[in-house]
Design a protein around this nucleic acid. Structure first.
Lengths: 249, 249
DNA sequence: TTGCTATTGTGTAAAAAATACACATTTTTG
DNA sequence: CAAAAATGTGTATTTTTTACACAATAGCAA
């Protein structure tokens, strides 16, 4: 057995009593139900949307809630979030990232439940909702209030998270089809950040990064001059993404 | 009862059965013990350090662990982390922020325990350790391996979190005394980011931000020309901190 | 008291990045 | 075939970042 990493000797005998029965210890811990809740973002008609259902709790009659579930025995939080997504959208390999835990003791009317929020990004067009019970639908983020539980808070936190993340990573592309025009990309950024961006500078920015692949194809069915369609070169991005040193606050 | 925020009507009768007994529902949920673990950072001798103790589990004999505890009934995670900090360092109002949850089903030898990691920043000089049981001590981050549980992973995640955060927010100042010299500040950044920075440009950066208050005092007990001591103007920072629009990846 | 050491404090020029801004081109639609 | 709507493109200006060197100050040792 190694004893590296420290000059300190073993603890003095008789001072600290080591606990042998780890299982007995844990069995006596107070326990809490844990859920995951997914803020599933989509982009449609130049609007950021969230996938919601009606709450099935009487206490939250007619209120919207996030898709979520209790975690199962020995299930990782990430896996539980994946499962929720698979069950509802039929999609695997969806972008999903943990945002944070919410633990307000009165957040659930049935007693204490801690939830871990996940943000998920997917292309609305590229999938079919599996089960459309409880009015499962895409809800515009703007017209969202009065949700069940603390889900409005959770949505707000995940939206802020998203605003920050799309500026630092090419996350936003998960919301678009595989092939997209620069206008679509700019609309996405403008909608999520709530700003107007200069078209020429926006294009310059993306071309300079040099992660866009010209597919040679053009938009179709647009009522105006069609734009070029690009793919994002995720592989090159993963190889070249810059590490990031700038003090700036 | 309001019915705003949506054009959709009530769910069709007989389709969805609303659950009235929320409490009964939650009572039947599987439950898991939840802990908080604090990665408490300090800065001493130009090194980033973490506050650790010896594990009191036989299974992790002689391994270092983070300070943590089981959360209590109806205790918020943030409050539990505050409590851990208060108990061990005697300090209230310490900088503490949730980083993320860790849920590996085998992370605890006694059975499943989910933990929520917090990063904490404090000035080592400005406090006394309350209880020094279990060899509570400040451990250099560099010489850290072979910890109990998944605590090395947690430390790594929190360290990355810290590296990112100090570049975007004036967090790092929580690691320094109230009054500090620019050299100390630069040492802090260099140690945490693991880079060398140009002194003139570093100073220029901070002076340009205009959040430093000249205290009029100078360093004492330094074996060379003493530097000026500054305070950080947190109030002005809170008023003026920029919101932040730059696509950059 | 003097000189040595270590570190503070300061400015400028060059390069890179961000911004502001306008017009010709292409396709669809009526 | 003209009008509408959007694409595609370049340059000049400003701002930010980077690279870089020397005089001034305090402690310390002789």
């Amino acid at each position: 057995m190694k004893n590296n990493g420290s000059k300190t000797e073993l603890p003095p005998e008789g001072k600290t009593v080591l606990i042998k029965d780890a299982k007995g210890l844990v069995d006596n811990y107070p326990k809490v139900p844990i859920t995951v809740d997914c803020v599933i973002f989509g982009f449609e008609e130049n609007e950021l949307k969230v996938l919601l259902i009606r709450s099935d709790l009487e206490a939250f009659r007619n209120k919207w809630t996030l898709l979520g579930d209790i975690i199962r025995d020995n299930e990782e939080l990430d896996d539980a979030a994946d499962r929720v997504l698979l069950e509802r959208t039929g999609m695997t390999d969806v972008f999903l990232e943990q945002v944070r835990a919410f633990s307000g003791p009165t957040r659930h009317p049935g007693g204490r439940v801690i939830t871990v929020a996940y943000a998920s990004l997917l292309d609305i067009g590229h999938h079919q909702l599996k089960i459309t019970d409880n009015e499962l639908h895409w809800h515009p983020l703007n017209s969202l209030k009065d949700m069940a539980f603390d889900h409005k808070q959770i949505v707000d936190a995940c939206y802020k998270w998203l605003q920050k993340m799309i500026q630092e990573h090419p996350l936003g592309l998960n919301l678009l089809p595989d092939k997209f025009s620069l206008r679509e990309l700019q609309n996405l950024y403008e909608a999520i950040l709530g700003v107007e961006l200069d078209r020429r500078n926006f294009r310059k920015k993306f071309f300079t990064m040099d992660f866009l692949i010209d597919t040679g194809e053009m938009e179709i069915d647009v009522p105006h001059r069609p734009g070029k369609l690009y793919k994002f070169n995720f592989k090159k991005y993963e190889r070249n993404k810059k590490k990031w040193f700038a003090i700036d606050f």
